[in-house]
């Protein structure tokens, strides 16, 4: 069996006095999309931030592309090939769309062909190229945050709840964009919108109380209403 692109083994993370991740273990195979599901407060965002080095793990092993990344600083983890789209989107409001994207292209000016590819599924980025990011709508900011993560090819993209607060029409557009993206890279998606996650995910891991309580194929979970109810408290049908 091929070695996974990313793996967490027995990872614990403390934030102040709180013990958030309590021995998290799961793997993200290379290619496609793995979805991390779970209710609010399960530890999904902390898991992504721990992978990114924004919270330091207090125990456990994190490996990316065969190398241990648990003790590395965030910039080194990013340079190893991981891009991050945080829940808050964290676009630089005072910078224009062009400046936000240019900054994310570390190796030089963005490749025009790559930009055209991004504009093909996020045309708003071309239209608002010279607009300050701070005046974009929520959906446009999310597009910008994702564009920033993919302006140069990365091996793994961590995306934290991209549909949060977005209108259904924008979410439909996002599904198309992610389908395109997962053809060229690996995506680890944290999501609460099970319908969105089920339509895109290849693999799934479910978290509860800082632990992984289920891992497997997304198709199996999407087809098993009883398992959805047991793991997530709601079935796919209830989201329709």
């Amino acid at each position: 069996m091929a070695e996974p692109l990313l793996s967490l083994e027995g990872v614990h993370t403390h934030i102040g006095q709180y013990h958030i991740l309590q021995g998290v273990s799961f793997a993200v195979p290379e290619g496609g999309m793995t979805v991390l599901l779970g209710r609010n407060g399960a530890g999904k965002t902390t898991a992504l931030r721990t992978i990114m080095g924004l919270w330091k793990p207090s125990a456990g092993v994190l490996r990316f592309a065969g190398a241990a990344i648990g003790g590395m600083a965030t910039p080194e983890i990013a340079r190893a090939g991981i891009a991050y789209v945080p829940e808050s989107m964290a676009v630089f409001s005072d910078l224009t769309v062009a400046e936000n994207i240019t900054l994310a292209a570390r190796s030089g000016p963005p490749d025009p062909a790559r930009l055209d590819w991004i504009f093909s599924f996020f045309p708003a980025m071309k239209r608002f190229w010279h607009a300050p990011a701070g005046v974009l709508s929520g959906g446009q900011k999310q597009m910008l945050a994702i564009s920033r993560a993919i302006v140069e090819k990365r091996r793994l993209i961590l995306v934290d709840e991209p549909t949060k607060g977005l209108a259904p029409a924008i979410i439909e557009g996002m599904i198309g964009a992610f389908r395109e993206l997962k053809r060229e890279t690996t995506i680890l998606l944290v999501e609460q919108n099970f319908r969105f996650a089920a339509s895109l995910g290849d693999n799934v891991a479910v978290m509860d109380d800082g632990r992984i309580v289920h891992a497997g194929a997304m198709a199996a979970l999407a087809a098993d209403e009883a398992m959805q109810t047991r793991l997530l408290g709601l079935s796919l049908d209830s989201h329709q």
Partner: peptide, 20 residues
């Protein structure tokens, strides 16, 4: 991504400007 979806995500509103 379909053209329809692209149009939807494109949000064909007026270009937002920074408030001077």
């Amino acid at each position: 991504m379909t053209d329809q979806a692209a149009t939807r995500t494109g949000a064909a509103d007026a270009i937002p400007q920074a408030r001077l």
